[in-house]
Structure formats: C-alpha cells, structure tokens
Amino acid sequence: MTGFSLPSTIPDGREETSRQAINSALTAIRQHLGMPIAYISEFVDGESVFRYVDAPGLENLIKPGDSRDLTDVYCLHILEGRLPELIPDTSKNPLALAMPITREIPIGAHMSIPIRLVDGTPYGMFCCLSPEANTSLNDRDLETMRLFANLAAQQIDKDYEERRILEEKRERILETLNTSAFAIAYQPIVDLGRMHPSGYEALCRFSAEPYRSPDVWFDEAAAVGLSV
C-alpha cells in the first residue's frame, strides 16, 4: 500500500488552546505598547509567513496566512544586526527609511524579537508596529516584549515537538503498511453446544521491530489519522 500523504497535526483541542495562548500574548503586548499591529511570523522557503496576527480593523494590511519575501521586510536585517530590535522612529534610521515597505505600509515605529526554537533554529519574529513614530518606546518596553516573545516561543516549541513525535509515529505506521509488516489471523468462535461457528475473530499480528502489542499500533495509527 502506497500513496499516503495525510498530515500529522496536533489534536484540535490542544491546537486551539495553543493558538488562543499565543493570540492572547499578542493582544496583551500590542495593547501595552499602544501599537495597532502585532504578529508572529515564520520563516518558510525565503518568505516571512504571518502565522498569528492581532490587528483589529487592519485586516486589509495583514492577516494570518499572508506572506512577504524576506528580502522585502526587516527580519533578516534584525537577525543579522543591521537593524535594531527597537526602532521608535523609522525616519531616523537610514536603512529602514530606504526600504520600500516602510513607506508602503507605512511603518513609523517598529519592535521585533527573533523567535528561536529550543535547538537554536530561527523560527520567525515576534513583532509590533505602528504607522506613526512612537518616541516614548524604550528599552524597558523592549524587555517586556522579549518576555512575551519568549512565552510564545515556548508554546511554539511545544507544538513543534508534538508535531515531530506525531510525524515519527506516522512514518512508522506508513512503513509498516508499505512493507506489509503485519498479518491477520482468522479463527472461528464456536458454539460448543451445537458444535457450530457462531462468529469469527480477526487478530492482527505485527512483525516490525521492536515488538509492540497490537493495541499500541492501532492507537498510534488513530493518533495520525491512519486507523482505517
């Protein structure tokens, strides 16, 4: 059997709880800083993909699933130290001022913290921005935002780890299916009074190593959407 391509995902309840926690962090920091847009982006194939967005009334500018080329946004410049994490007034920073996106959005004030997974891999950015400059923003605000970014990073890392475990289970199930590393034994259930079969039992036996009982195999298959 081949051709399975079902994605492994976090269970719906767990995923919704995670999303709510991250969205709450974005709302809290956006309101604390008095900025209209907060978001978390993920780096995917040379693009910054907006995964979580809190920008009430500005959905025409940014919404979850939107993306921009990394060469067009501030992210890489911040990661590589060419732009600071805190820019209270973009008109005072020559590089930010020269970037077309600063005028396009527009961006007057910008704060951004890189998000890294536990293993150090860059995931994306935790950002707040405003179309107007905000010279009241300071290092204390940046540290507060860093705290929220770290909390979001912990949640994202948990989600990544859970997806990684699910993917391992999925690959194990697919390998078992594709190599037919199991056999079905059929046996009758006999009515001894009439000496006649009253039903049949089908038992699945797995030959993959290391040995695991059938209930474990079926539970893992169900967890990754491959039970049938």
Rank of each mutant, 00 (worst) to 15 (best):
E85A: 12
E85I: 03
I107Q: 05
E104D: 14
L76V: 09
R82A: 15
P106Q: 02
P84S: 11
G108H: 06
S91W: 09
P106R: 02
T121Q: 10
I113G: 01
I107G: 07
G81M: 05
P88I: 09
R116L: 09
T121M: 07
I113E: 08
P94I: 02
I107F: 07
L86D: 11
P84Y: 04
P100D: 08
L79F: 13
P106G: 11
I101D: 05
L117C: 03
Y74K: 06
D119K: 00
R116C: 04
I78H: 09
P122W: 00
L117N: 04
T90Q: 04
R116F: 09
R103W: 07
I78Y: 10
E80V: 01
E85H: 11
P114T: 06
C75E: 03
L79D: 14
N93R: 03
L83A: 11
S91A: 15
L97S: 14
L79V: 13
V118D: 15
H110M: 06
L79N: 06
G108K: 07
I87D: 06
D89M: 09
L97V: 05
L83M: 11
R103K: 14
D89Y: 02
I115K: 00
V118T: 15
T102P: 06
T102N: 08
M99E: 11
L83P: 12
S112M: 13
R103I: 00
V73E: 00
P114Y: 02
I115P: 00
L95M: 12
L86V: 05
S91F: 13
I78C: 12
H77F: 13
A109N: 05
P94V: 02
I87N: 04
D89W: 08
P100V: 01
R82G: 07
I105P: 05
K92V: 06
E85G: 15
A109Q: 00
D119I: 00
I101P: 03
I115R: 00
L97F: 14
I87G: 00
Y74S: 12
E85M: 15
E85V: 02
E80S: 10
H77M: 11
G120Y: 00
S112Y: 10
Y74N: 11
M99H: 10
P94E: 10
Y74H: 11
M111D: 08
L83G: 12
R103D: 06
A96E: 14
P122F: 01
K92T: 14
L79K: 07
P100R: 03
T121R: 13
P94G: 03
G108F: 08
P84Q: 00
T102D: 04
L76T: 08
D89N: 15
